[in-house]
């Protein structure tokens, strides 16, 4: 099994006490990995550390065998991502936004921008400035930007935010097709597991800055139990565990 992404003992502590602690997991080629947890669990922080926007206090991240601190360019060569809100240069058109990104990948064919806009359903609006876009349209542009370079690893942070039902279905289909046909690996975070439960094959559950469960959906969830139910039960057990620890400490 080819390891695409390795996260090794990542810790990042903020002054306000938040952050992520001792996170370790890896993702193999072809996985659709769902990073799941409530708001504020540290998902975005973790993803930002993975793609180098935040420097961790400890630990390291390796993508396709390249350490992101020392070999950033090589590590990111085959990564496409959309982090936090799907922002774009508001004063540029959708097409021009992608044109900027495309310059980093000289080997891409010229038609690639149009193709990817078509794929996310933005082709009719490609000449329009982004400042007139709705949140859903920006989200789609963000996805297009992540997929533009034909990456082998795609990292998406809350990608379904602002998408309507049709958009969510399209999104799921696109992801599934890319994973099956092209063998693209996905790391997708969400606090709304329902949208992802149909497509993920591995999950990591985060709570309070820690990864409380990591594994294949088949391994973790017993037959007959829905993924949502499993996740909710895990979050609860973990919280009770915390309470127990707390009580012990007081005694």
């Amino acid at each position: 099994m080819d390891i695409v992404l390795e996260v090794n003992a990542i810790t990042k502590q903020y002054k306000n006490g938040r952050g992520v602690r001792d996170i370790r997991f890896d993702i193999a080629k072809g996985d659709i990995f769902g990073l799941i947890g409530p708001n504020g669990a540290g998902k975005t922080t973790l993803l930002k550390i993975i793609i180098g926007l935040i420097r961790p206090d400890h630990g390291s991240v390796t993508i396709f065998g390249n350490n992101t601190t020392d070999q950033f360019e090589q590590a990111m060569q085959q990564v496409g991502c959309m982090i936090e809100t799907a922002d774009a240069y508001e004063y540029l058109s959708a097409y021009d936004n992608l044109k900027l990104s495309a310059r980093f990948y000289p080997e891409l064919p010229k038609t690639r921008i149009d193709d990817v806009l078509e794929q996310v359903g933005l082709a009719p609006y490609k000449k329009e400035r982004v400042n007139g876009f709705s949140l859903g349209m920006k989200q789609r542009l963000g996805l297009a930007s992540a997929l533009l370079s034909k990456p082998k690893l795609v990292i998406l942070d809350e990608p379904t935010n602002g998408l309507d039902i049709e958009g969510i279905v399209n999104f799921r289909n696109t992801i599934q097709q890319l994973a099956r046909v092209h063998g693209i690996t996905f790391l997708i975070s969400s606090h709304m597991i329902t949208e992802l439960s149909l497509i993920v094959n591995r999950i990591g559950i985060m709570q309070n800055g820690q990864m409380i469960r990591v594994g294949g959906v088949d391994e973790l969830v017993k037959p007959g139990i829905r993924l949502e139910q499993y996740i909710v039960s895990q979050l609860h057990t973990s919280m009770e565990g915390d309470h127990d620890d707390h009580r012990k400490y007081i005694k």
Partner: peptide, 15 residues
């Protein structure tokens, strides 16, 4: 402020 700095930073180019 406009959250666009990261657009370039996540590309294969060093800071």
């Amino acid at each position: 402020a406009s959250n666009t700095l990261k657009l370039g930073l996540v590309r294969p180019i060093t800071r």
